[in-house]
Amino acid sequence: MTFKKIRFVTDSTSDIPEELVKQHHIGIVPAFVNYGGSSYADDGVELIREDYYNRLSSIRPFPTTSAPPPGLAEQVIKETFEDADHIVIVTAASKLSGIYNTMRLGASSLPQDRVTLIDSLSTTMGLGWQVIIGAEVAEQTGDPRQVEAAILKVRAAQRVFAAIGAMEFLHRSGRVGWAAASLGTLLQIKPVIEVKDGEVDSIAKVRTFARAIEVLVKLTREVAPLDRLAILFASDTEGAEKLSEELRDIAPPNTIFVSVNPAIGTHIGPSGLGVAPVQQSWRT
């Protein structure tokens, strides 16, 4: 079997750090953030995440996020495909976003036997790790089927947990049914959320952010030993450092810090923190 040149396309919600995007020649389709009557591509140019989170608390009405137009997805896919034998497209969970569908449309004019389209069932680095590890396997094997198999294993071995800084943001986002339902509760809660099977679930309800972080650490320890780990933050870099300290003994050497995408960040608020671990078990 011939070694194939395999390229990857994902969306900006994958939160893959810039240097890794370059290293693996990954094509990124930006999602869009809408506020103040305009729409901004989450591409590091139209929208700078750091500035955005610093302003988030004062943006009214509340920002919304949306999938990119199919034309833009098609353009990125075609550019990436140009010098490749095969293209693997991994997207944010189809249950969370319209991006999967946009990508499917964007890739519809390509020869379908040279396209692999995968719903990551996740977002942020839960998606990002699937792309990065997929790219690593592609560079070693040149085999689309081995790549797809590896991505599906990583998909099963990754988790995304986040502690919400303020519920206000999750409520306003309007995306999460249980979050809207919890608006009516007598006592405020600060849920710990998990992105699982393409949906955002509340997995613990606590009263304080400090307690939420304790739960986050406990959950992460429960899935160790880890192959990869990303610490997710919106604007609280200090909190992210502290969180990584708590996990130092189980964190793999290539642990990275990631500024989380506006779709998630707008949900969990500027002070929210999260983790995206991949269990070592994906290799077996």
């Binding site: 006592l187 809660i189 997995i203 613990a204 309800k205 606590v206 009263r207």
Partner: peptide, 13 residues
Amino acid sequence: GIATMFEYVNLCS
């Protein structure tokens, strides 16, 4: 009592 009930609710789920 309320603090302990939050633990209860989380574990029971």
